[in-house]
Amino acid sequence: MKTRYDLIVVGGGVLGTFHAYHALKKGLKVAVIEKDKMPKSATIQNFGQVVPSGMDSKWQAYGRESLLIYKEIQSQFDISIRQNGSVYLASNDEEVQLIEELAEINKGNDYQSNLLTKEECLSKYQGLRSDYVKAGLFFPDEVTVEPRTMIYRLQEYMQQFLGLELITNTAIVNCENTDAGVTVESAANETFLAKKVIICNGSEFKTLYPDLFFKSDIEVSKLQMLQTKPQANYKLDSSILTGLSIRRYEAFYECPSFKAIKSKEDADSLEKKWGVHILFKQAMDGSVILGDSHQYATAANSDDLGFNLDMDIDNFMIQEAKKIIDLPTYEIQNRWFGTYSQCKTKDVFEHTVGDNIHIITGIGGKGMTGSAGFSKENITKIFNV
């Protein structure tokens, strides 16, 4: 007899894993099927910031729920969560105006943020350049994660304490609704049975439903990031988001002055061309992660983004970072790019095949911040419990 699950999740990244987490919390029998030995795509290639502050009001709510979930799990099992807050550093009067407006918006949302003077920023953040910063907006409740650690520890926690069955090195090649639920078949001719299936992996979405995939409004973003060598006698408190982040993140779209300020920007600048905004985060080994850039292609043309790092982008990011923080060293020990899929017209791609196969992907850059909260609501909706 084959094991029958209440839910099979195809794809072991953060979005799929948190759908499994919330189903397990409801007492359901759940398996996550991952095509590789371990998740190795967007979830482990991202920057590792959980920043509800950067999202619009709808997704801020999901992100704030995610914060609670992360912290609850961390209190029981180390999944690399560190609550050191996030700060947005304004570099000119326009950006100061935007952070002041966002602070007012967050008062209405009952989400704590603290405006910092230039002097407070310089005192709090070692190496921050006086000729860059004008003011800051600090969110004390926000956390960082170690992307290359968190998802594996989370799945280990779920296996030990919640009864998750994690099935790896198993590529799914067929998924069909039946009278009894869903039959799932692997490339090795294994058959799995479930009441419901959630597909959260873009690769297997493409394999299983190519016509639907290519007709979707999914696009792929390529992001370049860098990691310095460990910094000697240096500590960077908080995740650092800078003026270009203030000009890019969706939370600021809701500020009254945003459109007028954006209209003045140079459309031909390199930061526009490469989608660059400068972020800093100190990793547990003392190194500093720098990023990031954004280049886009439709899902059908994602290979056009190339498979190499563009050193002009890396060099530009380092050049801009040096204008913001004087680190002991900008010697780089690691460079990489990540890719994630997102929808052009929707927050996330959702499509149901028949009654019991749910495709949920394309969450974009909201994955690490929003997945835990979004998945909680989604599991309740899918199972009606």
Rank of each mutant, 00 (worst) to 15 (best):
I151S: 09
I151W: 10
I151N: 06
Y152Q: 06
Y152D: 06
Y152N: 08
Y152I: 02
Y152C: 04
Y152G: 06
R153Y: 09
R153G: 05
R153I: 00
L154N: 02
L154M: 07
L154S: 03
L154G: 00
L154Y: 04
L154V: 01
L154I: 05
Q155R: 05
Q155M: 09
Q155L: 01
Q155T: 03
Q155H: 04
E156T: 13
E156Q: 12
E156F: 00
E156H: 06
E156N: 09
Y157N: 01
Y157V: 07
Y157F: 14
M158Y: 02
M158T: 01
M158E: 03
Q159P: 00
Q159S: 09
Q159R: 12
Q159E: 14
Q160T: 01
Q160G: 04
Q160H: 09
Q160P: 00
Q160S: 10
Q160K: 15
F161M: 06
F161L: 05
F161G: 00
F161T: 12
F161N: 11
F161R: 11
F161C: 05
L162R: 05
G163C: 06
G163D: 05
G163S: 04
G163V: 08
G163A: 04
G163P: 03
L164E: 02
L164K: 03
L164Q: 06
L164T: 06
L164N: 05
E165H: 11
E165F: 04
E165S: 12
E165R: 08
L166A: 09
L166V: 00
L166W: 12
L166D: 05
I167Q: 06
I167T: 08
I167V: 15
I167N: 09
I167M: 11
I167H: 07
I167F: 07
T168I: 10
T168C: 15
T168M: 13
N169E: 15
N169A: 10
N169H: 14
N169T: 12
N169K: 14
N169R: 13
T170R: 11
T170C: 13
T170K: 10
T170H: 10
T170Y: 08
T170N: 10
T170L: 07
A171V: 13
A171R: 15
A171P: 05
A171L: 15
I172G: 12
I172N: 12
I172E: 14
I172W: 11
I172S: 14
I172A: 13
V173F: 12
V173H: 11
N174R: 15
N174V: 04
N174G: 15
N174E: 15
C175F: 07
C175S: 13
C175K: 08
C175T: 13
C175W: 08
E176A: 08
E176L: 09
E176T: 09
E176Q: 14
E176P: 00
E176R: 11
E176C: 10
E176Y: 01
N177A: 11
N177T: 08
N177S: 11
T178S: 04
T178I: 03
T178K: 01
T178A: 02
D179H: 09
D179A: 14
D179C: 01
D179T: 11
D179I: 07
D179F: 07
D179Q: 12
A180T: 11
A180R: 12
A180H: 10
A180I: 05
A180Q: 14
G181K: 08
G181V: 07
G181F: 05
G181H: 07
G181E: 06
G181Q: 09
G181P: 07
G181R: 10
G181M: 07
V182D: 03
V182T: 03
V182W: 01
V182N: 02
V182P: 02
V182K: 04
V182L: 06
